[in-house]
Design a binder for these strands. Structure first.
Lengths: 236, 236
DNA sequence: CCAAAAGTGTTAATATTACACCCATGA
DNA sequence: TCATGGGTGTAATATTAACACTTTTGG
């Protein structure tokens, strides 16, 4: 999807991509070329494209992943969203001074994604010179309302985590219970009691134990689990 | 906001307005002139208008109310949303055959509102010849995905009701606990035990008892309460 | 005084929290 | 055999559900 080409004017999507690494919750950010701001991965919506498809496509371009947990969380439409500088930059880079709709205010539909950090091939888009992970607690200066978007996405994620066990999506195909617990602790921002966590997770009966065990440890190897369903619990 | 005049193309808002009357949960629907479909109150977003403001404005036009509980719940953007007939109707009624953006697919931001049924002056818009309440369990045939919108709004409302006590907004300024309980029972679709409900609601300490009591009853009059905060708990 | 409204008390069932403790196992 | 992973048991506490019963009060 090229900018301005056959897509819905004044509508964009922005994606908060969550990853987990080194005991930290991270988000994927782009550094907009020759600007001091960072930005969320985003894009536009084709005339013949579902909103969800557009988000999926953008994330495929930024991460290389086709299957990922993706959920719409809010639509941002404040009048002052424009911050002209950015729009001008966009128009400039695309040499589309004629595309006047790029100068206008945008309504942005926010999605959040949960991905396996280790599988992501972070790839900058045409406007950016880097695409990297940042600790959610140490975010750089973000453009427009992207900081607010991340906050809202995180709030939503915390609430959702109590409804359904979606945290698996942040881990590789197979993982140990201890790793899963660390994910929960990081997202919820509090320590959990190991034995109770184990009981609760296993009682959900959504995990199955895999044969191969963790290797390399000096002592007993932990069991390795994977999510029972063959496909990711997308829109389940 | 006139159609096509200085507003964001291909973006609309639709509002699910909930009201409570005669022990039933109701939604406000418009009957589109000379069509067999009913529709949710909706409208477009001005270039200089917040999304929230647009929803507020639309609801003010349809209900006469300026202060109401309003919450965004989802944005609908499926590729097949267009259903050409409706767009054509819109264009025709507005005699805007030149406004080609009206023929295109729309992204619609969904809001739900909780209002005091008795205060609403239901007013049809330019495209409709009626604006009325319908029992949520006996909805007429709705255009496009509006039925799905109502369902999603209701799902969201049920979840939100467990988080914060927003049900007051469906009642008049003052009300009895029994009335409030009926609202909860209707929304949640199950009976509640009176004494426990009373305890729980009063323990939240968000209600204050008013002097004047219910009149007309043959026996003891129930106490009348109102929400403690002076203004509605909008975005609290 | 009657009947509806409001509120208190109490019990059982269930869920949550926090630990102590035991079994399994691989180098 | 020992340090770590994995799991069971259980007591203390909190929450919820259900219902009996008392008090209030307008006519």
């Amino acid at each position: 999807m090229k900018f301005g080409e056959n897509c819905i004017p004044q509508v964009s999507i922005d994606c908060v991509v969550f990853g987990f690494h080194a005991h930290q919750l991270k988000v994927l950010l782009l550094r907009v070329r020759s600007m001091e701001y960072y930005a969320l991965p985003g894009g536009f919506v084709g005339q013949e494209e579902d909103l969800d498809e557009a988000a999926q496509r953008v994330l495929q371009e930024r991460t290389g992943l086709t299957e990922l947990y993706l959920e719409q969380f809010y639509t941002f439409g404040q009048r002052n969203r424009g911050e002209i500088e950015m729009q001008q930059k966009l128009a400039e880079v695309n040499r589309l001074s004629s595309a006047e709709w790029l100068q206008k205010r945008f309504i942005s539909v926010g999605y959040y994604a949960l991905v396996d950090f280790s599988l992501v091939k972070a790839t900058p888009d045409a406007l950016s010179d880097s695409c990297d992970w940042y600790d959610i607690n140490q975010l750089p200066l973000l453009m427009m309302d992207h900081h607010q978007m991340i906050q809202k996405a995180l709030d939503t994620l915390r609430i959702m985590l109590e409804y359904k066990p979606i945290a698996f999506n942040l881990l590789p195909e197979s993982f140990t219970i201890a790793e899963l617990q660390r994910v929960y602790e990081t997202i919820l921002g509090k320590e959990l009691i190991r034995t109770n966590f184990q009981r609760k997770i296993l009682s959900l009966e959504i995990l199955e134990r895999i044969e191969k065990k963790y290797t390399g440890g000096a002592h007993k190897a932990p069991y390795v689990y994977r999510f029972k369903s063959t496909k990711k619990p997308h829109e389940s």
